[in-house]
Simulated scan of single mutants.
Amino acid sequence: MAVLLATGLGAALVPAVNAAPQQAAGTTCETATDWVAGTWYPAGSIVRYNGSYYRAEHENPGYDPVISHWYWHPYSCDGGGQNPGPGSFVVSEAQFNQMFPNRNSFYTYSGLVAALSSYPGFANTGSEEVKRREAAAFLANVSHETGGLVHIVEENTANYPHYCDPGQPFGCPAGQAAYYGRGPIQLSWNYNYKAAGDALGIDLLGNPWLVQNDPAVAWRTALWFWNTQPGAGTMSGHQAIVSGAGFGESIRSINGSEECNGRNPGQVQSRVTTFQNFSALLGTTPGGNLYC
């Protein structure tokens, strides 16, 4: 991952003459269709867009769900298609806001909850203590990577061309400087965008900008890395917590080549302190093996 150097149904309306076709009200996750530009969507409509679900908070003539956040909110189809709410995640919205009081509005709680369906084992494996510990560990690392969910993209633009590995068979179709760090765990390098996109069913190699424009996609890439990638270590962050290997191994996975084995103890301590604070907030314990 890149290193940040600066620590972004209501009733259907009757369409006007010549208006685009209207989607039927009462859409559910089971009947949701792919979003289509120019289609009239009543409030409460649910659509699929780039592998994620969105609910129309206000009626609209087919505005893009990513661009028009006032009209569309990320939506979770867990729990029988109900809106994300208390109890659907071990972290409540109030706790999330307490963890990130200065967060960028891009990083929405609803976007995170909507992304959870991609990895149902996340913060949902083992005892209640372990579930909460994993959420705290993930969010502590996220906080460190983004300066408290403030930064959406890597700030040092001079690094941007560095993240294209032309030796990959798929190359860098979006441009040499297109694969810089983005999102909660600062996804970077063309091969990581390719792998994450393949896993999530999204063309992130061709359109890496989705990670900085769509909150649910951004969270899904972070959960992809956390749940499946060993990174610089030998196991994923998810495996590190649920197996008892400890928080230190999650640090090794994310940025071990720069921080572990005594390379940058200040950065490691920052992650650990945040993890301890988040664990206390969630009513769990941090466990052992905190350092790498």
Results as ranks from 00 to 15, higher is better:
Asp78Thr: 13
Ser68His: 14
Gly201Pro: 04
Arg271Phe: 00
Val66Gln: 08
Ala177His: 03
Ser279Ala: 15
Gly121Asn: 15
Asn192Leu: 11
Gly233Pro: 08
Ser257Glu: 07
Ala123Thr: 08
Asn190Arg: 07
Ala199Arg: 10
Thr157Gly: 09
Trp189Leu: 03
Thr125Gln: 12
Lys131Cys: 03
Thr285Cys: 04
Val272Leu: 05
Gln176Val: 12
Glu145Cys: 00
Gln276Val: 14
Tyr160Pro: 04
Gly233Asp: 06
Asn261Gln: 12
Gly283Pro: 06
Gln82Ile: 02
Asn83Met: 11
Ala280Phe: 05
Asn277Gln: 13
Glu59Cys: 09
Thr108Ser: 15
Glu259Gly: 07
Ser250Gly: 12
Ser257Ile: 06
Ile254Met: 05
Gly233Arg: 02
Thr28Asp: 09
Asp165Gly: 03
Arg103Tyr: 14
Gly148Met: 02
Arg48Asn: 15
Asn190Gln: 09
Pro230Arg: 10
Ala2Gln: 08
Ser188Pro: 04
Gly256Trp: 00
Phe96Met: 07
Asn83Phe: 14
Ala19Leu: 07
Leu290Met: 08
Gly181Val: 09
Gly266Val: 08
Val272Gln: 07
Glu134Ala: 02
Ala123Ile: 08
Gly10Tyr: 03
Pro84Ala: 15
Asn124Cys: 10
Leu5Ala: 13
Tyr63Phe: 14
Gly111Trp: 00
Asn277Ile: 07
Tyr163Gly: 10
Glu134Lys: 08
Arg220Ile: 01
Leu204Met: 03
Arg48Gln: 13
Ser279Val: 03
Gly10Cys: 07
Trp224Thr: 01
Val150Gly: 00
Gln276Trp: 10
Gly81Tyr: 12
Asn277Ser: 14
Gly121Met: 10
Asn192Glu: 13
Gly244Phe: 11
Val113Phe: 01
Pro215Asp: 04
Gly79Tyr: 15
Ser117Lys: 15
Asn255Thr: 05
Asn124His: 15
Gly197Asp: 04
Arg132Phe: 01
Leu210Gln: 03
Asn192Ala: 13
Gly8Met: 05
Ser270Thr: 13
Leu223Trp: 05
Thr234Leu: 00
Tyr291His: 10
Ile251Val: 13
Thr27Pro: 04
Ser279Cys: 15
Asn213His: 11
Glu134His: 01
Ala12Lys: 10
Asn83Gln: 15
Gly283Met: 05
Asp214Glu: 03
Tyr193Pro: 07
Pro15Gly: 10
Gly148Cys: 09
Thr284Gln: 00
Ala195Pro: 02
Asn159Arg: 14
Ala177Pro: 04
